[in-house]
Design a protein around this nucleic acid. Sequence first.
DNA 1: TTTAATGGTTTAAAATAACGAACGGATAGG
DNA 2: CCTATCCGTTCGTTATTTTAAACCATTAAA
Lengths: 112, 112
Amino acid sequence: MANLTRLKHEFTRSSDFLIAIGDQTRQKIMIALLDEKVIHQGLQVTDLVGVTGLSRPAVSHHLKILKEAKIVDYRREGTKNFYYLTHQTKAIDQLKTLLDHITEVMACNQQR
Amino acid sequence: MANLTRLKHEFTRSSDFLIAIGDQTRQKIMIALLDEKVIHQGLQVTDLVGVTGLSRPAVSHHLKILKEAKIVDYRREGTKNFYYLTHQTKAIDQLKTLLDHITEVMACNQQR
DNA sequence: TTTAATGGTTTAAAATAACGAACGGATAGG
DNA sequence: CCTATCCGTTCGTTATTTTAAACCATTAAA
């Protein structure tokens, strides 16, 4: 009962995140950002254009979505914007919670 | 290095699942199916039409996507199709693995 | 066999998302 | 001040997704 209401909220809460990370282009961007452990100062939009093979406006568009999903953030330096992953695990944790609850409810149904 | 290659594959592997569960209508369908713990014999398409407020072809379409993502399956009884959640946790587990690895790589970057 | 119920598929329309060309704003360097 | 660099935004186009009307197949019931 309350379980399903909770699930409903958790689905809603994780929707943006799910949509954000479901897209192939955005996955490429995230992987590139995960990769920059050497540089560790963020990647410029121009760099990500190279990674994705898309135009700058397209990349800019995806970065906006990732930014709104709190997955990335950026820092200005002159005219340059350095994008990096917010090292927040909040969205990840919330999604994990959702997945756990789904598993839980399924297991509960399973046994009867 | 190999970490990122692995992540890339895991992203690809979970893509269908992410896209499937990111949609609001499909979330409604899944919640309805999770709810049928009393009946526990599956829900008919007509039932799901009521739940979602959409037309039958639309529901049928979403069920197809959920079916291809191995999230639901169905059983025929005469002219009736009873849809239920495959109680497979494989896709869920794979996604959890992905999330764990992301967290891992992020933590690794964090410390330097 | 005829009629009703159930539901998948095809088709076409509508809504949404993704995309690049062109533009403009801000900053750095000369 | 002028020029170049970097990047977001606007706009119109294209691609993809979502949707329902119409159609067809299957099965059950009369």
